[in-house]
Nucleic acid binder design. Structure first.
Lengths: 199, 199
DNA sequence: CATGTTGTTGACCGATCCGTCCAGAACACC
DNA sequence: GGTGTTCTGGACGGATCGGTCAACAACATG
């Protein structure tokens, strides 16, 4: 019956996501979003609602994709500890340094909006809880595989790993020297693991 | 010769700082700043320049005050390790939880603006380098005092401590349960220190 | 091909944005 | 007390903000 959409919803969400990611929520205007999405005003509002709702949609999609990726890597990881290692070292893993400088959309958004926008803070808790659960699973596997002290509290380590990663993300955003960032990541990793000698 | 100022510059900077801290840079309007400062437009622009310059002034004052406080606490600390402990546990040290939820003005600003405003990223590097230097000094003292492994690289630990603290700040901003935040801080601390049993 | 429903486009709105400017007020100095 | 300089408050400006709306286009259905 109705006229069909002329655009791919996912493409629009990704384009809009990049705009928010690069400029932040408040500094991104609806005109920016129309430009990067290529849509007219009516289409964008009709499909996603106002700026705030669109942003939350983008943020949730971003988080879900991250979590999916993390779960997938856990499923395919040779050892549980590999996921933990990648999770920390991955922050600095970009020869150009662009990714660390860009940071994480969720972390950036939380820092910008958590006070004024409870939705964003709640989304951050949801996402961080999920990440903690995945890391906990990975660490429990690592305990069974002999890579982590079996008497330690896996959930507690998981939270600490998450904190370290968030700190690395924050440091990366300052434009900190990439080698230094990698060194910090390795240090953070070394504390957690009695086992494999780095390098 | 000239007519004297009718306002206290420092009071204005503090009031403006709180406004930026609570709403972020972009979401804070000049009208907001006029309101909280109580100044007229001519006065604010005459004394501090435009919004961007005013913000940088506020941010630098904030950082300088932080660094002064840190240096002072190092000077008066009974042991070097005490400063490191306070630096980490202090993130969650507020019964109401308001301070963790508010986060750090520098961290918030870096997350919001680092991409588009190189000044802010540079200021963050400056501040974090200074903090690392202070923590390094504290850790070297702790090494001499037998609280930290003397063979460890103090500067490397300092950077890792800074990363952990930034991660805690980020977690606190999500509104995470205060007890959980304290636990994470204690865990992070425990990694670094072979010595004193926490609690 | 007629009809009905939805998508698309862009003009348009009031509000708010940041910054300039100017007329008048308040002091220091002679 | 006159004079000069700065400070003060607010009117004003052009630009941009987010959001609505109506006319038109494009399809699915019968």
């Amino acid at each position: 019956m109705p006229r069909p959409r002329e655009f791919d919803e996912e493409r629009v969400v990704l384009a809009v996501r990049d705009a928010f990611w690069d400029k932040g929520y408040a500094a991104t205007s609806m005109d920016d979003l129309l430009r990067v999405s290529g849509l007219g005003k009516g289409s964008l509002y009709g499909a996603f609602g106002d700026k705030h709702r669109l942003f939350l949609r983008v943020l949730r999609d971003y988080d879900d994709a991250n979590l999916r990726g993390l779960r997938e890597r856990l499923a395919f990881a040779a050892r549980g500890i590999d996921l933990v290692r990648d999770f920390l070292l991955g922050v600095a893993d970009d020869p150009t340094g662009a990714a660390p400088r860009r940071g994480c959309l969720l972390a950036n958004s939380t820092a910008e909006l958590a006070t004024s926008t409870p939705d964003v803070a709640a989304e951050a808790r949801r996402s961080y809880d999920a990440i903690t659960a995945i890391l906990t699973e990975a660490l429990e596997r690592a305990q069974r595989e002999g890579d982590v002290d079996p008497d330690a509290d896996a959930a507690e380590i998981a939270r600490a790993v998450l904190a370290a990663q968030l700190g690395l993300v924050a440091l990366g955003r300052t434009g900190m020297d990439l080698a230094a960032l990698t060194t910090v990541a390795r240090s953070a990793l070394a504390w957690l693991l009695p086992t494999p000698a780095p390098r």
